[in-house]
Design a protein around this nucleic acid. Structure first.
Lengths: 232, 232
DNA sequence: ATTACTAATCATCGAGTAA
DNA sequence: TTTACTCGATGATTAGTAA
């Protein structure tokens, strides 16, 4: 979590449209909105950039500011917290629809590692098929929803290291694929690769079990744990 | 708007349950959550109390903290802002159901004042019947929703003064009563009386027009202006 | 215009401690 | 145990100004 003052500046930027389309603004006008000096606005932007929460392109007449995925995550975290506090119903599951595509087989590699595999058996309750089903999310709303996963509590697979290298932690959610097979969705922890992809694992080979080929549509129901995580 | 640091402390308190039931907590344990010193936690609580955002009852072993309506409003304001930013659909109207009851006739008094009446004609487009229909909200969800009105933009009736005294500003929302009559809901601006009451005005005498007597249920559809207000 | 440096100012914080 | 004071240290903000 960034410091409250910085979070607030980030929030202000978002209100002005820096999420998505991005905005062009001068530090002076930002300062007015924040009720701070031009110098402080400038410093805040520098610090937010260093934290990786915004991207900037400084031009002659102001700067182009865009909130990064990491930045949106910080906003989303508080949003979820407020949802809970203000008694907005928190979903118990999220549904996605994606198209099957072939990855490069890294999924299979990671799952085959004993460090991960043993945790999957223990924490998810099944011995995974050694491969992942990659789903490309196409609708805008699904991609949007996908990002919400980042701030929900999931089942954590701890990072570990073997002789060769070290492996980071990952976050899983139990899931139901095509309303038929129980499995899980796996997301790397705090690594922002492609936000429009869902990686699914299951105890069985999903392609044969569900008779899938590239381009087929698949529905996934992802189960959320109650409260949003709240930590740095 | 309180300072960002204080807002954040307020938010933390809310997360711990200080909204609604209230919490018993020591400044030391609060300090841990905030990652601040006990002294700072203490100071924050003092300041929040001075701002009227929380109420405290200090006991031998910690203090009882309760977030006030004003405090919740501050949280709600940011929540709504985040809704907009994160592209959650903002409602265009809110619906309520309440029971008719007889007030003390102050409604009629206020509306009869030229200072308000002229603004109603001009800004709401009708000449109001000189009285209000009081609705008591009974369901918890309606009372909850009623509070949301505080942070939405409405049509503002400016305050004024006459020979006798001065009158504060009020906020209105156009409304549809029982899906039949067009009128408006009036809320005093930043005065927190009874949060479970809705005051309705209309160009006609609603009790005869809709054939209402005390205790009858009435549906009200309240129309919201686009964006939430964002100011002190 | 801009952004952002340095230096001076001012607010906030935490240590120590009283009640 | 508590809360919350004083006060010196820390850190954030603004003024002035360079680029």
């Amino acid at each position: 979590m960034p410091k409250p003052v910085l979070w607030f500046t980030l929030y202000c930027l978002a209100e002005m449209g820096a999420y998505g389309r991005g905005i062009q603004i001068s530090t002076t006008s930002l300062a007015e909105k924040l009720e701070l000096s031009q110098q402080s606005a400038s410093r805040h932007l520098i610090e937010l950039e260093h934290l990786g929460l915004i991207e900037r392109h400084i031009t002659a007449r102001g700067e182009l500011i865009q909130i990064t995925n990491k930045g949106v995550e910080e906003l989303r975290r508080v949003h979820l917290g407020l949802n809970t506090v203000l008694e907005k119903p928190t979903p118990t599951f999220l549904t996605f629809e994606g198209e099957v595509f072939s990855g490069l087989g890294e999924g299979a590699y990671y799952i085959s590692l004993r460090g991960y595999r043993r945790q999957i058996v223990k924490k998810l309750g099944f011995d995974p098929y050694l491969g992942t089903l990659n789903l490309k999310l196409t609708s805008k709303i699904d991609i949007q929803t996908r990002k919400e996963l980042d701030v929900y509590l999931g089942i954590v697979l701890e990072g570990f290291e073997n002789e060769t290298r070290s492996y980071g932690p990952a976050k899983c959610f139990k899931a139901l694929i095509n309303n038929a097979v129980e499995g899980a969705v796996v997301t790397a922890f705090r690594t922002h690769y492609d936000e429009s992809v869902l990686e699914v694992i299951a105890p069985v080979y999903l392609r044969t079990r569900l008779n899938l080929k590239d381009g087929d549509k698949v529905q996934v129901k992802v189960f959320i744990l109650r409260s949003p995580e709240f930590s740095a």
